[in-house]
């Protein structure tokens, strides 16, 4: 393979200036430059967080999102990242019992709080009624949105144990399913609620 030759430097700002007007009208290359170097000391904070019932202490980088902490540092990869922007719901977990997007919250903000992930739904090896119902109604197709759907449903049932189909749709709006198995997810939650939470 060819070796990288060192090239003359062109500063980004100079480049942007150089193309000036053309950039604004004809090309408008987006890319608002906010640059930093990794040599800056990266702020870190020690936190204490309860995850699926177990209290854990860890030093986190302040910039870590909660989902990063869960997946990369606690190995809880059941929580997925679909967009990292609060636009899909794949990363939904419960924070103090309420569904939130773990991609749009910082890990430091979970200090002193309690997080439940899909891994925490199963109690003593027994599936949660929702999990059982998701299986029976074929909720997951590709399954990538499923953990998020489960956690949203869980949060909904905590607040409203007997929701109507419309209440389920409203409560789970924040969870996209591109396989579009919405009908089955709603049926599954209805059935789980009827059966009562175990």
């Amino acid at each position: 393979m060819a070796k990288l030759k060192s090239k003359k430097k062109i500063s980004r700002r100079k480049f942007l200036q150089g193309t000036g007007a053309a950039l604004a009208v004809a090309t408008a290359a987006p890319g608002v430059g906010a640059q930093n170097t990794a040599t800056d000391a990266i702020p870190r904070t020690a936190i204490r967080v309860t995850v699926n019932g177990t209290q854990r202490r860890i030093e986190v980088e302040d910039r870590w999102t909660l989902v990063e902490l869960l997946r990369d540092h606690f190995g809880l990869t059941g929580t997925k990242i679909g967009c990292d922007r609060g636009e899909c719901g794949a990363c939904t977990v419960l924070l103090d019992g309420k569904p939130i997007y773990s991609c749009s919250n910082l890990a430091v903000w979970a200090d002193g709080r309690s997080v439940q992930t899909v891994e925490g739904l199963t109690q003593n090896g027994r599936l949660d009624a929702l999990q059982q119902s998701f299986i029976e109604h074929d909720g997951p197709q590709c399954g990538f949105c499923t953990s998020g759907q489960l956690m949203s449903a869980k949060g909904l049932l905590i607040r409203n144990p007997r929701p109507t189909a419309d209440e389920i749709r409203a409560g789970m709006t924040g969870n996209l399913c591109r396989c579009s198995n919405y009908n089955h997810y709603v049926e599954a939650v209805l059935a789980a609620a009827k059966g009562g939470s175990r």
Binding site: A24, P30, G89, P99, G174
Partner: peptide, 30 residues
């Protein structure tokens, strides 16, 4: 506003002070 997950963390002040959702702004156009 948005979804239950966002309403569970989004604050009134933050909602009022949120930046525009114009696609040019959000895509980083100058």
């Amino acid at each position: 506003v948005a979804t239950p997950q966002i309403r569970n963390v989004g604050t009134l002040a933050g909602n009022v002070c949120q930046r525009p959702w114009c696609w040019y702004f959000r895509n980083g156009f100058p």
